[in-house]
Design a protein around this nucleic acid. Structure first.
Lengths: 229, 229
DNA sequence: GCAAAAGTGTTCATAATACACCCATGT
DNA sequence: ACATGGGTGTATTATGAACACTTTTGC
């Protein structure tokens, strides 16, 4: 492109929308906002925000995530840009969607409530404004793809967790029941988890060892973690 | 977001950049532009263009692809949005990258030349302006992922092609040699190709049947076409 | 006859799947 | 005692990788 063209080119509003996933009560949860004021009062939406002059879309997403959850260093992945001219009735806005994974019990729940946000289980998600349902579906697809090829959970589960908890997370993500024995063997074969000297005595009589992600764990590349489709 | 906020929010230039892949001479080719004028004269770049007021980024990409190649209905996939504030020294521009697959012999080669574009083999790609090399790498990764999970080639090869041609395309994409027998069996097992009553007598003495993609072919989901990583 | 790709078949190693089975313990 | 998850083992099947082998035909 030419320098001279820069002044002539049209400018656009750019927003970010965040699909915020958490995990609680054996289900994937989504942080949603119920609009308190017109327009669109009472309708549900994702967390959104404008992109400022001197920031990347990633920085914008981190900024809005921080204002709502109080957390820095949230794990995020870009989903896609959404840009149909009519997607937002309020004006022509190009939005870049991100999904974020957060530990549901570590964020500032008061801050979240104050901001009018609610955790809603994935299979109870209502109709959302604009193209937010489409964004959610794209995000879920990306999350599933990621979970297929590497052991995820570090950003959704507590620091230490049992294989049962991890398996139930996978059950929730893929909406199917994984075989306990096979799942354990497969997950441990990746050698990204380390067994701790602590046992969870709450969820079973025998007690299950806690595991945590190794700090130096490398990713698996394209070796399937689970076969799901 | 609120209606009232729309007027206050900052506006940005948005561009699209296209990573245009073709296949010729047993190699993946990339359509690149050598700048004829200052600034950045002599340097190489991807095909880019501004996004207009009333069009989606996909429409913008299709539009610039059409002006350069003369083709409608080009196969495209969104790669990612690139938005570091300093990525373009000419100004703050958020760019959405797309990769496109085109049949290298079907486009208007005169139009391409007139526009100052050149096909360059993937392993001879020079340093590109801005973050265009990064865009290319992201696009290649996406293309490889796609080729891993479904039989691609419909958009890169001629309408009818031999298994040898398809295998060489895969060799080029993954920069490795696939075993002829195993590749044939695996590809045909997906049942997305149909054998034609025509033989290619050019590339072998015995002659190889031409195949083409079935028009109704369904995608494979997550069953690997080839193992590559 | 040789070379080179076409096309099929065979063998071996590895991985996924479906279970069986014993363990530990709170109730 | 028994129910429940923890954890390990195993038989069966499916898949991938390596490669042998036969076919065809232009040179």
């Amino acid at each position: 492109m030419l320098h001279s063209e820069y002044k002539l080119a049209p400018k656009h509003l750019i927003s970010v929308d965040c699909i915020i996933f958490g995990y609680d009560k054996e289900e994937l949860q989504l942080l949603l906002f119920n609009r308190k004021i017109e327009p669109q009062k009472g309708r549900w939406s994702l967390l959104g925000g404008w992109v400022n002059e001197e920031e990347s879309v990633e920085d914008a997403a981190r900024r809005v995530l921080k204002t709502i959850t109080g957390l820095d260093d949230i794990y995020m992945e870009q989903v896609s840009a959404f840009s149909k001219p009519e997607r937002d009735p309020g004006g022509r806005v190009v939005s870049v969607a991100f999904y974020a994974l957060i530990r549901i019990n570590e964020h500032d729940i008061q801050l979240v409530i104050k901001n009018g946000a609610t955790w809603i289980s994935l299979n109870k998600v209502p109709e959302l404004i604009f193209d937010h349902n489409e964004m959610l579906n794209n995000a879920l697809e990306k999350l599933r793809l990621k979970a297929s090829y590497e052991v995820i959970g570090n950003q959704l589960l507590p620091e230490s967790f049992t294989i049962l908890q991890l398996r139930k997370l996978y059950d929730a993500i893929f909406q199917k029941k994984f075989d306990p024995g096979n799942f354990r063997k497969k997950i441990l074969s990746f050698k990204v988890l380390e067994k701790m000297n602590k046992k969870n005595m709450k969820d079973s009589k025998k007690g299950a060892f806690y595991y945590r992600f190794k700090s130096n764990a490398k990713k698996s590349g394209l070796i399937p973690v689970v076969k799901t489709f």
